[in-house]
Every structure is written in structure tokens, then in C-alpha cells.
Simulated assay, not measured.
Amino acid sequence: MKLILTQPVSGLGSAGDVVDVKDGYARNYLLPRKLGTPWTKGGQKQVDAITAARAKREVRTAEEAASAKASLEGQAVQVEARAGNGGRLFGAVTSAEIAEAIAAAGGPQVDRRRIEVPAPIRNVGDHTAHVRLHEDVTATVTVTVTGA
């Protein structure tokens, strides 16, 4: 099934890309979450509008993303969560909590959907998270989890 992506999807493409995916992936994941719309001939106008808007923003945001990356990688972000004996958390640290901690530490406002955690954070200690600031710019953030 051909789709026009309306939001960036990790591992698939960015907004405005026309992608060919399996029917079940489109029907059960991309379309219900409004991450894509079915491709039609009239939809090509939508693709052109999205790519034109992205081209305008791209140069400006690339410079901002590079400066934000420098500030993010230089600091550790601290998140406090409830933990039991042995440092095991009750639940996991979410990307929304990491985004709040980045903002509280004086970093840039980051959307939680742009934060990728390689493995769920379920223990007290230092962990890494990747923040996609731009298509070509990804910052690695050190997340220090403390028990409460």
C-alpha cells in the first residue's frame, strides 16, 4: 500500500515522503495514529506542499539543532523515580519524563516523540537516550535515574 507520511516515522521516512508498506502495517499502525494518508493522484499536491514547507524550515532548523545538540550532550539529565530495594523501579522512565527533565535542566523544549530510548529504563543508574533534533542531527543524552 502506498502512503504519504504526514509525520516523521523512525526507520521509515519523514513527513512528505511517499512510502510503500505492507497493508497490515498501514491499516493497523500508521493510519489510526494519523502518521500517514493513502496516496492518490490528488494527494501528490499535498506531498508537494509538505516538501516545500520542509525545505523552507530545513536550513534554519539545522543550525538550531546543531547548537541544541552541543548543549544537550554536555550535560546529564536527572530523573527521579520510585524505586524498591536493589534499585529496581516501579514501572519505567518514559520519554515524556525525560523531555520534562531536559526542559527543567535548562535544555531546549523537546517533543517526547523525538526521544528514543534503546531499552526500557527500569533500574537506578546512568542510561542513554537519543534525541532526534533534526533529520541529520541526533544528540545522545545521559539520563541519571535516582530512586525516591
Rank of each mutant, 00 (worst) to 15 (best):
K2T: 09
L3W: 03
L3K: 02
I4C: 04
T6A: 05
S10Y: 04
G11N: 12
G13F: 06
G16N: 11
G16E: 08
D17S: 11
D17K: 10
D17Q: 13
V18I: 15
V19N: 06
D20T: 12
D23Q: 13
Y25C: 01
Y25S: 06
A26M: 10
A26E: 09
A26W: 06
R27L: 10
N28K: 09
N28D: 11
L30S: 03
K34T: 08
K34D: 14
L35W: 04
G36D: 05
T37F: 03
P38R: 15
W39H: 08
K41D: 07
K41G: 11
G42V: 10
K45F: 05
Q46D: 15
D48Q: 14
I50G: 06
I50T: 08
I50P: 04
T51C: 10
A52D: 09
R54D: 12
R54H: 09
R54M: 12
K56V: 15
R60F: 08
A62L: 15
E63R: 13
E64I: 14
E64N: 08
A65V: 02
S67K: 14
S67D: 08
K69N: 00
L72G: 02
E73R: 03
E73M: 01
G74T: 06
A76L: 07
V77N: 06
Q78W: 06
V79W: 02
A81G: 07
A81Q: 10
A81I: 12
R82P: 07
N85G: 10
N85C: 09
N85I: 13
G86R: 14
G86V: 15
G87R: 11
G87Y: 06
F90S: 07
A92C: 11
V93D: 05
V93R: 09
T94H: 08
S95D: 11
E97P: 03
E97N: 04
A99L: 05
E100L: 11
E100M: 06
A101T: 04
A101G: 01
A101Q: 00
A101K: 05
I102A: 05
A105W: 02
G107N: 00
P108S: 01
V110R: 00
R112S: 07
R112Q: 08
I115D: 00
E116T: 15
V117C: 02
V117D: 04
P118S: 04
P118I: 09
A119K: 12
A119P: 01
I121A: 02
N123W: 09
N123G: 11
G125E: 13
T128H: 08
A129N: 01
A129M: 08
H130E: 10
H130K: 12
H134N: 05
H134A: 00
E135L: 13
E135Y: 04
V137I: 15
T138E: 15
A139T: 05
V141E: 00
V141Q: 00
V141K: 00
T142Q: 09
